[in-house]
């Protein structure tokens, strides 16, 4: 290693990067911290990162398990000599005791119990995985044709691909919605997936990568007797893994986090909610807006898969993003 000398430029660079990282990390910190604290601590903004984790009573649990008439009557018979109010208080105390919990546990348990978060996560996986798979099935042959085959109008087609890159999703959301509605496809997985199956970004990215694959390799495959589709799947796909990973990042991250489109096409059926829609449930969930803890707990659960994936494949992610030369 070369001894690092102090340099103003380098220090400045790192200072800027650290401020940037802080700005990006702060919301995550708040989310994580809030997901661990009790409602009181959240409101009073105290307790540091973890909160005191003091035993608290789950008021919803208490409300749900309020002693019923029959139970009070039964208790009175068991212990004559006590009047109704005293029995009720005693029973309520037991309930309260049973409903005592730690804030962190309360938040995460509520996240899963107040809304079917697991179902939402499953929906998210189904939707993002099908989108990515279909995008690959469409983009790879298209990119191969654009990069390696000579046909009349190829440049025009590629020009159209580039043009489509410029169209924002929101501009075509309404016509897309109307089309899906007329086909009777709203409130279905199809509605969540179909509009994204053709990714011009994917076609563009893969085409740029395929341009770098030597023609000799394709010619060799042809000499060996492969057809054009075999070449796409058996030769181009394995060589394109890094590019495909880069594309996977863009595709999975954007569709996992997408709130806009699921909100548009899933109007009633809660069983089709994707994680961001599920998160929305908590917004007015308790009516009093005191459900920040569980809400942030669900948010943590939702971003966790992406964060874990990133940590596991950090190096490849960075390679992929550098490769695509974007962002």
């Amino acid at each position: 290693m070369i001894a690092h000398r102090f340099s103003v430029a380098e220090t400045l660079k790192h200072a800027v990067l650290m401020v940037g990282a802080l700005i990006v990390a702060l919301p995550f910190y708040v989310m994580l911290s809030t997901s661990l604290k009790s409602p009181g601590e959240i409101e009073r903004n105290e307790g540091g990162f973890f909160g005191a984790q003091a035993v608290m009573t789950d008021e919803y649990c208490v409300k749900r398990n309020e002693p019923e008439r029959a139970a009070i009557e039964a208790a009175r018979r068991a212990q004559p000599g006590l009047d109704e109010t005293a029995v009720r208080t005693a029973l309520l105390a037991t309930v309260r005791e049973n409903c005592a919990t730690r804030p962190a546990i309360f938040n995460y348990v509520s996240a899963f119990s107040e809304a079917p978060l697991l179902l939402y996560l499953l929906n998210g996986i189904i939707v993002t995985a099908s989108i990515f798979l279909l995008q690959v099935i469409v983009a790879l042959p298209a990119a191969y044709a654009l990069a390696k085959l000579k046909f009349w109008g190829r440049d025009l087609v590629f020009g159209l691909v580039l043009f489509c890159l410029l169209i924002p999703v929101h501009a075509i959301a309404l016509p897309l919605y109307i089309a899906l509605a007329k086909l009777g496809l709203t409130n279905s997985y199809a509605a969540l997936v179909i509009p994204w199956t053709i990714s011009v970004f994917g076609i563009f990215l893969m085409r740029q990568f395929f341009m770098t694959v030597p023609d000799d390799l394709i010619d060799a495959a042809r000499m060996d007797g492969m057809g054009e589709f075999s070449i796409v799947w058996k030769v181009m796909l394995p060589t394109a893994i890094p590019a495909l990973l880069a594309f996977a990042i863009f595709s999975v991250v954007s569709h996992w986090n997408d709130y806009f489109w699921p909100r548009v096409v899933v109007t009633g059926d809660r069983s089709l909610f994707t994680p961001p829609l599920g998160l929305h449930e908590f917004r007015g969930g308790g009516g009093d807006g005191s459900l920040y803890g569980p809400m942030m707990a669900s948010a943590t659960v939702i971003v966790a898969p992406l964060v874990v994936a990133f940590l596991l494949a950090q190096r490849r992610f960075i390679e992929g993003i550098t490769l695509s030369g974007m962002k």
Binding site: D216, D219, A220, R222, M223, P238, T239
Partner: peptide, 21 residues
């Protein structure tokens, strides 16, 4: 006739081996 059906084999400058195999 398709290249593969011509009963010829070709060796390329860049060798063109399948990198994943």
């Amino acid at each position: 006739i398709r290249p593969s059906a011509r009963d010829l084999a070709m060796v390329f400058q860049s060798y063109a081996l399948y990198p994943h195999l």
